[in-house]
């Protein structure tokens, strides 16, 4: 394959990474924005989503589409409830003190991860996609004969991968509508701006916190349900999404949803493209150092407006 088509394929893979990353990172950003809690266990909720998707689809059996539909509905619900109860049982009792919540979520990370190892086992398990059609992609070229469109050999994608991008975009749109057009969103934003004032106006802040924590985890789980037919469910798979989500949330400006989505696109696309052409380890080193530098020299993030 020539350079052009190769780049296009890399960009497509990057777009899938970006779509899933946007969902996961928006979940992290939401909990940080509203609750000021750094949830180190976020990646584990992602992993649980994938494991739940595998579990649901193997239990239901039949056509993979049924399992997929059930997983899309049930997995985020179960994991959201799990996260909300973790908030209720642990984080609430810590009064959301930053250091103690970090310690507690590190603890949750290991509990969930090792729990998955015991319940799910150390092997990676595949999940069948609900549908999958090979789609050949065209490539355009200006030659001496004029404009030409042809289908290079090997340049193809599959319909499910395109569906991931579409579905993630729809979900993000839905979340944006919830946050800006509904009462729940209004109440959440009010809590984010001023917790004490929100309490004074009779908003049940504790319940909003549990809801936010659950919603954040559900978004990560949803991202995992979407990606698991392309990847595989594995008990250590939460590590990379956690780190990348951190990177995205920081670059996008802590707590800013729009910045998070923009940063997810930037990081996801460049991760996809860089790791095709360079050593992935080197790409990760550069990305992590870049993030550290952003935090040091521009703590409000690249897209953020000002310090809170």
């Amino acid at each position: 394959m020539e350079f052009g088509p190769h780049l296009m394929l890399a960009a497509l893979e990057g777009a899938i990474t970006a779509a899933i990353l946007a969902l996961t990172a928006v979940g992290l950003s939401l909990t940080f924005g509203v609750m000021r809690v750094v949830n180190v266990a976020h990646g584990e909720f992602f992993m649980l989503g994938a494991v739940a998707a595998w579990f649901i689809s193997t239990t239901i059996g039949g056509h993979p589409a049924w399992g997929f539909i059930a997983a899309v509905v049930l997995a985020p619900l179960i994991i959201g409830l799990l996260a909300a109860s973790a908030d209720w049982l642990v984080l609430k009792r810590l009064d959301y003190d930053p250091e103690r919540t970090i310690v507690a979520t590190i603890g949750l990370l290991y509990i969930i991860q090792q729990g998955a190892l015991i319940g799910f086992g150390p092997n990676a398990q595949p999940v069948e996609p609900p549908f999958s059609h090979r789609i050949a992609l065209p490539w355009f070229e200006w030659t001496e004969a004029g404009f030409e469109m042809y289908y290079p050999w090997g340049l193809s994608t599959n319909s499910y991968k395109l569906f991931i991008i579409f579905a993630a975009a729809m979900l993000l749109l839905g979340l944006w509508l919830i946050m800006t057009r509904t009462k729940v969103g209004l109440v959440m934003r009010a809590t984010q701006q001023d917790r004490d004032m929100a309490t004074a106006f009779g908003i049940p802040v504790e319940r909003i916190y549990a809801l936010t924590f659950g919603l954040g985890a559900a978004l990560a789980a949803l991202g995992a349900v979407l990606i698991v037919p392309v990847q595989q469910a594995y008990y250590l798979m939460g590590h990379d999404p956690l780190l990348l989500s951190f990177i995205v949330v920081i670059i996008g400006g802590l707590g800013s949803l729009r910045g998070t989505v923009l940063a997810a696109l930037l990081i996801g696309m460049s991760d996809g493209i860089i790791s095709v052409f360079f050593s992935p380890t080197l790409a990760k080193i550069i990305a992590t150092l870049l993030v550290a530098m952003v935090l040091v020299f521009r703590p409000q993030g690249l897209f953020g407006k000002g310090v809170h």
Binding site: L94, V103, I106, G107, Y110, Q113, Q114
Partner: peptide, 15 residues
């Protein structure tokens, strides 16, 4: 060598 113990201890200490 199970890290779950570490997790439980961390949560318990924080609480």
């Amino acid at each position: 060598g199970n890290m779950m113990v570490a997790g439980v201890v961390l949560v318990a200490l924080a609480l």
